[in-house]
Computed example of a mutant assay.
Amino acid sequence: MLAFVYKSLKKADTYVYLAARDDFARLPAPVRAQLGELRFVLEVALTPERTLARENPEVVRRNLAANGFHLQLPPSVQDPLLDDWGTDA
């Protein structure tokens, strides 16, 4: 399965995978409005042995098959002050 990846120029670290190149009609209007302009960045074959840096490729394939798109949001940022530093003092 091929996926066509676009970067949102409005939302940092936000990407859209499409099942067909430039098929933006698949995106719901509210999502499209939030993303703003999209720039093509990559064509990738999502084979079963393929790995992706931030996404589970099986989830991406399922979303592409069911909806025609997959939305990759930025990783959540955790406050380092909330981390367990190993001190109980």
Results as ranks from 00 to 15, higher is better:
residue 1 M to C: 04
residue 2 L to M: 08
residue 2 L to Q: 12
residue 2 L to Y: 12
residue 3 A to T: 08
residue 4 F to P: 05
residue 5 V to C: 08
residue 6 Y to N: 06
residue 7 K to V: 13
residue 7 K to T: 12
residue 7 K to Y: 00
residue 9 L to A: 10
residue 10 K to S: 11
residue 11 K to E: 15
residue 12 A to S: 11
residue 13 D to E: 15
residue 13 D to S: 12
residue 13 D to I: 00
residue 14 T to M: 07
residue 15 Y to I: 13
residue 16 V to K: 01
residue 17 Y to F: 15
residue 18 L to Q: 04
residue 18 L to C: 02
residue 18 L to E: 03
residue 20 A to S: 11
residue 20 A to K: 12
residue 21 R to Q: 12
residue 21 R to H: 10
residue 22 D to V: 08
residue 22 D to N: 12
residue 22 D to R: 06
residue 25 A to Y: 00
residue 26 R to E: 08
residue 27 L to E: 07
residue 28 P to V: 11
residue 28 P to C: 03
residue 30 P to K: 02
residue 30 P to G: 05
residue 30 P to N: 00
residue 32 R to A: 15
residue 33 A to S: 12
residue 33 A to Y: 05
residue 34 Q to A: 15
residue 35 L to E: 04
residue 36 G to H: 05
residue 37 E to L: 13
residue 37 E to V: 14
residue 38 L to W: 05
residue 39 R to A: 14
residue 40 F to R: 05
residue 40 F to M: 06
residue 41 V to E: 14
residue 42 L to P: 01
residue 42 L to C: 11
residue 45 A to I: 01
residue 45 A to L: 08
residue 46 L to P: 07
residue 46 L to S: 03
residue 47 T to F: 08
residue 49 E to C: 03
residue 53 A to W: 02
residue 54 R to Q: 13
residue 54 R to D: 10
residue 55 E to P: 00
residue 55 E to S: 15
residue 56 N to F: 07
residue 57 P to L: 03
residue 58 E to Y: 08
residue 58 E to V: 12
residue 58 E to S: 11
residue 59 V to I: 12
residue 60 V to L: 02
residue 61 R to D: 04
residue 61 R to W: 02
residue 62 R to A: 12
residue 63 N to H: 11
residue 63 N to I: 00
residue 65 A to Q: 14
residue 65 A to W: 03
residue 67 N to G: 03
residue 68 G to I: 05
residue 68 G to M: 06
residue 68 G to Q: 07
residue 68 G to A: 03
residue 69 F to M: 05
residue 70 H to V: 00
residue 73 L to R: 15
residue 73 L to W: 13
residue 74 P to E: 01
residue 74 P to C: 07
residue 74 P to W: 08
residue 75 P to G: 10
residue 76 S to I: 07
residue 76 S to F: 14
residue 76 S to N: 03
residue 77 V to R: 15
residue 77 V to D: 10
residue 78 Q to A: 14
residue 79 D to V: 11
residue 79 D to Y: 14
residue 79 D to I: 02
residue 81 L to K: 14
residue 83 D to H: 12
residue 84 D to S: 05
residue 84 D to Y: 10
residue 86 G to W: 04
residue 87 T to D: 01
residue 88 D to T: 00
residue 89 A to E: 13
